[in-house]
């Protein structure tokens, strides 16, 4: 469904990603594992169209989407739920959700999408009229995920969904992600909580210094010595 081939990308003169190739098949849950600064976020931002790759191609559902901008990627059905929630703090939760269905295609079914999303996130329903900035970190993360789903994306990308959350909330966030996965969504997820994500994912890539050094099924990665040493600390 999504295929990156030999992607190079970075900010200004600095190249962060070197020759990244990866694929995500429909219905799969794929994770990218790596240390801080390895280029995980840059990979997701490149796929989302926020960064133009300097070389390589990205194809989505068989079409070349390498040069598309972020709003065109949203139209294609790719949504990124960014690191640190990134809600619109002075808007109500409902307004935040509606922004998730901003594109013309999504606007038509925004009411239906809202109902679907709220049935997945009953806690969000209780907060609809509150300002997003007044919510707790865990609630904000739920709203961010719900907002991402408003466009009914074909591919949902998560960037560090557990960042800065208390352990108990982290578990809840992962429960939600698992529920979404069960609905058949295709998911690409980046997490520092390596163990949690590998448990939830089908396959994983290990990213070090902007290069993919390992690619395997989650189970194999969980038992890989390098992964265990570098990321699980054992």
């Amino acid at each position: 469904m999504l295929r990156l081939e030999n992607i190079h990308a970075g900010y200004g003169p600095t190249t962060i990603l070197h020759d990244i190739s990866l694929t995500v098949e429909a219905g799969e849950v794929v994770t990218i594992v790596g240390a801080n600064g390895a280029g995980k976020t840059t990979t997701l931002r490149t796929i989302a169209g926020l960064i133009r790759p300097t070389a390589g191609t990205i194809t989505f559902e068989g079409e070349d989407v390498t040069r598309l901008s972020s709003h065109e990627m949203v139209d294609r059905g790719i949504t990124l739920i960014p690191e640190g929630r990134q809600l619109f703090p002075d808007m109500t939760v409902q307004e935040n959700l509606l922004m998730g269905a901003y594109r013309k295609a999504a606007r038509q079914h925004k009411d239906a999408a809202l109902q679907e999303v709220l049935s997945l996130f009953p806690r969000v329903r209780e907060r609809l009229t509150q300002k997003a900035g007044s919510l707790s970190g865990g609630e904000q993360q739920m709203v961010a995920i719900a907002r991402g789903m408003m466009a009914r994306p074909k591919l949902l990308m998560f960037d560090e969904p557990s960042l800065g959350l208390a352990p108990i909330i982290v578990t809840q966030v992962f429960d939600v992600i698992e529920t979404i996965v069960k609905t058949g969504a295709t998911v690409l997820i980046v997490e520092q909580n390596v163990f949690h994500t590998l448990k939830a994912a089908d396959r994983g890539y290990v990213l070090e210094n902007g290069e993919i050094v390992l690619a395997d099924t989650s189970d194999a990665l969980l038992h890989n010595d390098h992964v265990r040493q570098a990321y699980l600390g054992i």
């Binding site: 578990t171 163990f195 949690h196 600390g233």
Partner: peptide, 20 residues
Amino acid sequence: VVKDPVVVEAYLGKEFIDAQ
């Protein structure tokens, strides 16, 4: 310190300990 269960939990989550 890295063997301390409290530390492992903080980094990896409780399930990891349980799984181990």
